[in-house]
């Protein structure tokens, strides 16, 4: 394993956990659609998307575990609420409103691809190698959600109204994806998370505006206010605890069970 400066290990693990946690909970939320998708193809799609996100989360937890000492299962299911590093947008329930589920994927997917791009240039080789693999698989996700934005936005008056409403509601919390983890500036300076947060934010806004423009939709996105403490620093919505209770019900019965 390559060397990582001692004082950066914890922030770096938190950076990996932020990515893994985003994927774990987005995957869980998407898996709730299995059997309930509005059409067969989207039932398959959401089940596949959930599997992808969970598999990617698992790979990132394993990598974090090599530095932290805990197993992927322990990291996924065995932490206290405040130890999670996911953003609010993956925590909120979609109330089985498919427009909300898709709007969430729009904001998260474009963010995820840009984050994986930065990971793929990380000085920490195990991360850069993994990120290149994940980014290749993630392309299909972006294509899927972008195509659906155009279909829904230019479909019927009802589809336009409902997707626009969902986008407007989630646009209020979506920029919290950009909240930095503790000591993120040091990770950037050390080349472990190369690139600039501000540039990534600009790129994310441009990509989303471009897709929504084609779809005759719009979103008002405010920059993240660094004063706001949120999920990346362990401050979560009430929805996270409820989701963890459901996801960890079996795990907590016998945390050391071999599967």
């Amino acid at each position: 394993m390559p060397d990582l400066p001692e004082h950066l290990t914890k922030p770096f693990v938190n950076l990996l956990l932020a990515a893994a946690d985003d994927k774990l909970f987005l995957g869980h939320r998407n898996s709730e659609w299995t059997g309930l998708g509005p059409i067969l193809e989207e039932d398959i799609a959401f089940s596949a998307l959930a599997q992808d996100e969970m598999a990617h989360a698992s790979a990132l937890y394993e990598l974090a575990g090599t530095l932290d000492g805990r197993s992927a299962d322990q990291l996924a299911f065995g932490r206290k609420g405040a130890e999670y590093r996911c953003a609010a947008i993956v925590e909120v329930p979609d109330e089985f409103d498919w427009a909300t589920a898709m709007a969430r994927r729009l904001f998260c997917n474009h963010f995820d691809v840009l984050r994986l791009e930065r990971f793929s240039h990380s000085a920490y080789k195990p991360l850069s190698h993994l990120a290149r693999r994940l980014a290749a698989e993630q392309q299909a996700h972006v294509q899927h959600v972008d195509d659906w934005m155009v279909r829904l936005g230019t479909g019927t008056p009802e589809s336009h109204r409902r997707i626009q409403q969902a986008i407007a509601a989630l646009a209020r919390i979506a920029p919290q994806l950009f909240e930095p983890v503790e000591s993120q500036d040091q990770l950037v300076a050390a080349g472990l998370y190369p690139g600039r947060d501000q540039e990534m934010y600009g790129q994310w806004c441009r990509e989303i505006e471009h897709v929504l423009g084609r779809a005759h939709l719009s979103a008002h996105l405010d920059a993240f206010n660094p004063e706001d403490r949120g999920g990346r620093r362990g401050v979560h919505t009430v929805h996270l605890a409820a989701m963890l209770d459901e996801m960890c019900e079996v795990y907590r019965l016998e945390p050391d069970a071999a599967w």
């Binding site: 398959i44 799609a45 299909a140």
Partner: peptide, 13 residues
């Protein structure tokens, strides 16, 4: 293309 997702993560229909 019928579906960009399929029976396993690596396949489309």
């Amino acid at each position: 293309q019928d579906s960009p997702f399929g029976p396993t993560r690596c396949r489309m229909i």
